[in-house]
């Protein structure tokens, strides 16, 4: 009898664990099937054409894809130096008594839902951008900055964790040789934790590119590629969030699903690179 129960327990845990693989495969399959119509209709034009006109049944995702790339790039340019600074501060500079409270508050801020960052951006940041750069304040620049602020706590926390893996004994040896803090950071901490830091930054990139709510409020959802960053723009998640409930034709839906598929493939790739190339989980069994 116990043998039967033992078997049932073992097999049901395995079945449920395999479900995770099954769901992932299912998501890819469903998104692919749903976007077939759009793929057949537009082919490669879908990713190179920027005309997105639901009334004419013309869908080109170039503006949305570029919007995702540009806003994420902006966010990374702004957030990476600050995040590395925060990480250096937390792991090497801050007094022991400061480390815990500052570290924990940064982790807590990483837990605040992104919809709240978006709301803050809309009410408090858009007017500032409007006053400084003119225009309506909603657009690529605002989205990039809000995205940078939203991703900063996560990025800083993971980078700090990477830096903290440096063994104290290595650092102490360098200090004993008369190294300054910067010498130790440059010649010991960074070389030692390089893979971890790069992995942390790429992981943050993977999260930023799929982030929806922080940017939906402040992007404007206008399908146009413009080098003027203060102009309203769009990105893949912004388009999905704004138009999914408005789509009325099969082709419209199919195009949105193709956008979702593109987004999933992009972020899946980026996250895999971060996780498998740089952050291989070490486990001693």
């Amino acid at each position: 009898m116990t043998k039967i129960i033992d078997n049932i327990f073992a097999n049901s845990t395995r079945l449920i664990a395999i479900t995770v693989l099954f769901i992932t495969a299912w998501i890819f399959t469903v998104l692919f099937q749903e976007s077939l119509l759009s793929m057949q209709t537009f082919g490669l034009d879908f990713v190179t054409e920027s005309k997105w006109a639901p009334n004419l049944e013309k869908f080109g995702a170039f503006a949305a894809i570029m919007g995702s790339v540009i806003s994420t790039f902006l966010a990374m340019v702004l957030a990476v130096p600050v995040a590395i600074g925060v990480a250096i501060f937390l792991s090497e500079i801050a007094h022991e008594r400061l480390k815990a409270p500052v570290g924990v508050s940064i982790e807590l801020l990483a837990a605040i839902p992104s919809v709240i960052y978006g709301m803050w951006g809309l009410f408090y940041f858009v007017p500032i951008i409007r006053d400084i750069f003119g225009g309506i304040g909603i657009g690529m620049l605002t989205a990039g900055i809000v995205l940078a602020i939203m991703i900063l706590p996560f990025m800083a926390a993971v980078t700090r964790d990477a830096m903290n893996t440096t063994p104290d004994i290595l650092k102490e040896s360098a200090y004993a040789l008369g190294g300054t803090k910067w010498d130790v950071i440059r010649d010991i901490v960074i070389p030692y934790s390089k893979a971890g830091i790069i992995g942390a930054l790429i992981l943050a990139l993977g999260r930023a590119i799929g982030e929806t709510m922080a940017v939906t409020f402040v992007m404007g959802n206008v399908h146009k590629v413009s080098w003027d960053l203060t102009q309203p723009a769009t990105s893949i998640p912004v388009t999905l969030a704004n138009e999914f409930t408005e789509a009325d034709t099969d082709l419209y839906f199919s195009s949105l699903f193709e956008l979702a598929l593109i987004l999933l493939v992009i972020s899946f790739t980026i996250i895999s690179i971060a996780k498998f190339y740089f952050l291989r989980r070490k486990r001693s069994v």
Binding site: T24, T212, L263, F268
Partner: peptide, 14 residues
């Protein structure tokens, strides 16, 4: 691990 960081809006569309 990858699904943990995948865009949540994609899950919504699925």
């Amino acid at each position: 691990d990858i699904m943990m960081s995948a865009p949540s809006i994609v899950v919504g569309s699925f």
